[in-house]
Simulated assay, not measured.
Amino acid sequence: METLRYVAFSSDPKGGNPAGVVLDASGTDDAAMLATAAEVGYSETAFVREAGEGSLDVRYFSPLAEVPFCGHATIATAVAHAERHGTGRLLLRTAAGPVTVTTDRAADGALVATLVSVPPRTVPLDEGDLAELLAILGWSADDLDPALPPRVAFAGAWHPVLATASRERLADLDYDMPTLAALMTGRDWTTIDLVHRESPTVYHARNPFPPGGVVEDPATGAAAAAFGGYLRELELVPVPATLTIHQGVDMGRPSTITVTVPAQAGSGIGVTGTAVRI
């Protein structure tokens, strides 16, 4: 079993979010996948099994547990597959549902992948959970941007969305990891999507990921897709829309995620990025 290492959402190996990729996980059981993900040590490693022409079974493991879907590992997997088999469209069968991903060459020759998420959903965030989240993060209600109300958003995995009106507040991230991990595990949340709106189409994000054993994710494609669905459902952006999300900057691993929000309600959200081998 060969484990590849890629950075997604950056053309520079020093930026983006690292992911492990196993393109042939045939015959590998859950324990071996979890052990491999823990050894790799990245926020996620993708394990692929061929499932027919143009179709792949993909499972995602953090160092601590399996997760239903991971955006950056999907982008990394698509680019790794394209390097060996050529560009085109693939159907990925994930625990969250079917996800299509298309690879192509950019003008500069870089491989770029676009995934289309499962149908997104947005639900209210319980007031008690909101209060607990704010307390753990050291935020107050005054730190929140009233134009982007707290919600829990889904596009393959669940992410509470908390928006702050202050870029400085977003940059100052400090929290108790075990306490936040316990809350998130109890609610089945994958990351916390902390965002700041620079303009109607440009956002900055940070994503704590303690259930996966990671303090913070430098690029979270699943959360970006969920956030695109959140904006559409709450009518916070004219659709169709193309958004740019900057993540990882405050960690020293800058990432750029392009999010495409179709006008049709309930349709999957597009997430685009490049990936390079480490």
Rank of each mutant, 00 (worst) to 15 (best):
V101N: 15
T114D: 08
I75C: 06
V152G: 12
G156A: 13
Y42P: 05
T272C: 11
I257R: 10
A205H: 05
Q247C: 02
A141I: 04
A76K: 10
A51V: 04
R93W: 02
L4I: 05
L194Y: 12
G138F: 06
V271Y: 12
G248I: 09
D29V: 03
L34Q: 15
S11V: 07
A265Y: 06
T260S: 12
Y175K: 11
A223H: 07
G252R: 07
R167N: 05
G252H: 00
V202A: 12
T114C: 00
R121S: 11
D12N: 15
L91K: 14
Y60L: 00
Y42C: 10
L92F: 15
G97P: 12
D142G: 07
A37R: 05
P18E: 07
S26P: 01
L243R: 02
S10H: 10
E216Y: 09
V99D: 09
G109T: 09
R253E: 10
G27Q: 05
A80M: 03
R5G: 00
E235H: 13
G212K: 04
A46Y: 07
P68V: 01
L137K: 08
E66I: 12
A107P: 01
A51Q: 06
L234C: 07
G41E: 06
T122E: 08
A181D: 12
L231G: 03
R197M: 04
C70H: 06
T190G: 07
L34P: 03
V79L: 10
G273M: 09
V123W: 02
R84T: 08
Q247I: 04
G268D: 11
A181K: 11
L234K: 11
G15S: 08
D143I: 04
A95D: 07
G97I: 02
T114G: 05
E2F: 06
T77D: 04
A275M: 08
E233A: 15
T100H: 01
T274F: 00
F154W: 13
V152L: 07
A263L: 03
F227M: 01
T201K: 09
I136Y: 10
P120F: 10
D129K: 12
V67G: 08
L243P: 10
S10F: 08
F9N: 05
S199W: 08
F227W: 08
D176Y: 08
I245P: 02
P98C: 10
T122A: 13
A38W: 11
A155G: 14
E168L: 11
D12A: 03
V276Q: 00
P124V: 03
V239W: 08
E127V: 14
A241L: 07
A131V: 13
L111M: 00
T179A: 15
A226P: 09
D217N: 04
G248M: 13
N17H: 10
D30S: 12
V261C: 02
V152F: 02
T36Q: 06
G229Q: 07
T190D: 13
W139L: 01
A110H: 03
A135E: 13
P262H: 10
E44M: 04
T74K: 00
A31I: 04
I257E: 05
L133V: 00
G266D: 02
L231E: 10
S166L: 00
L170M: 13
E233W: 03
T179R: 15
A31F: 04
T256S: 14
F9A: 01
A37Q: 03
P240D: 14
S117F: 10
T244S: 15
R253C: 05
T242Q: 03
L125A: 05
D217M: 07
R169G: 08
W189P: 04
S43K: 03
S140A: 09
D126C: 02
G266V: 02
R167M: 11
